[in-house]
């Protein structure tokens, strides 16, 4: 454990959350996997990971009693409050909904829908790809031109006003979004080697007590 800023990685029982925690720890955060309301309240930053199907992630979030907590934290971050980072499906859940699970409603903090990847390419995109960054501040600061990140997804958010980075896969896909201190990344920074760690380091640095 480090003395760095406390980061709550929301633990709602899906897939591999441990890598996100370990990567944040590596970058100096006191990161914990937790579903505990008090620990989440006390955290300086919130990370919402997610793998698998959109609807299943939302159902799991619900079953853990974390849907309202996550939505409120994301809304607060978007208004300039405590930083919040959604990763992969954790980013997609910030949107209104997804074609993957039409019966499930997203958290609705960022407007737009998540759509199936088309364009004559293999789906899912499961590979490293380069970012085309349109807003290289804060979370995406200091990345090399065309930074390589690891993507695994069959669906992608619509490109909209909140989009701050894209990647080219058949067509341009939304790779990162920002609203205030609310961030979402479609790629896996915790699995993108040192370039990905840089992104998580930027997140930790943006927190009170992060250096």
């Amino acid at each position: 454990m480090t003395d760095g800023p406390p980061v709550a990685v929301l633990d709602y029982g899906i897939g591999n959350l441990r890598s996100a925690q370990k990567a944040l720890q590596r970058m100096g955060a006191n990161a914990a996997l937790t579903a505990d309301r008090d620990r989440i309240d006390e955290a300086a930053g919130i990370v919402l990971p997610g793998v698998g199907a959109f609807g299943r992630c939302l159902a799991a979030l619900d079953a853990s009693g974390l849907t309202d907590t996550a939505r409120e934290a994301a809304v607060d971050a978007a208004a300039g409050g405590r930083p919040f980072l959604g990763i992969c499906v954790g980013m997609q859940m910030l949107f209104d909904g997804s074609d993957e699970s039409s019966g499930s409603q997203g958290l609705g903090v960022i407007e737009g829908r998540v759509r199936r990847i088309t364009g004559g390419v293999k789906c899912p995109q499961m590979q490293w790809n380069r970012l085309d960054i349109t807003d290289g501040e804060a979370l995406l600061a200091g990345l090399p031109e065309g930074a390589w990140m690891y993507f695994v997804h069959g669906y992608a958010a619509e490109i909209g006003p909140a989009t701050v980075a894209t990647c080219e896969y058949g067509t341009p896909l939304c790779a990162a979004v920002r609203r205030g201190n609310l961030w979402g990344v479609q790629f896996h920074p915790e699995k993108s080697g040192r370039t990905g760690l840089k992104v998580l380091g930027n997140f930790v640095k943006s927190l009170p007590g992060g250096s």
Binding site: I14, G15, N16, V51, R56, P124, M126, V152
Partner: peptide, 8 residues
């Protein structure tokens, strides 16, 4: 696939 997602 149902439990962890196809990507796993």
């Amino acid at each position: 696939a149902a439990e962890f997602g196809e990507q796993c």
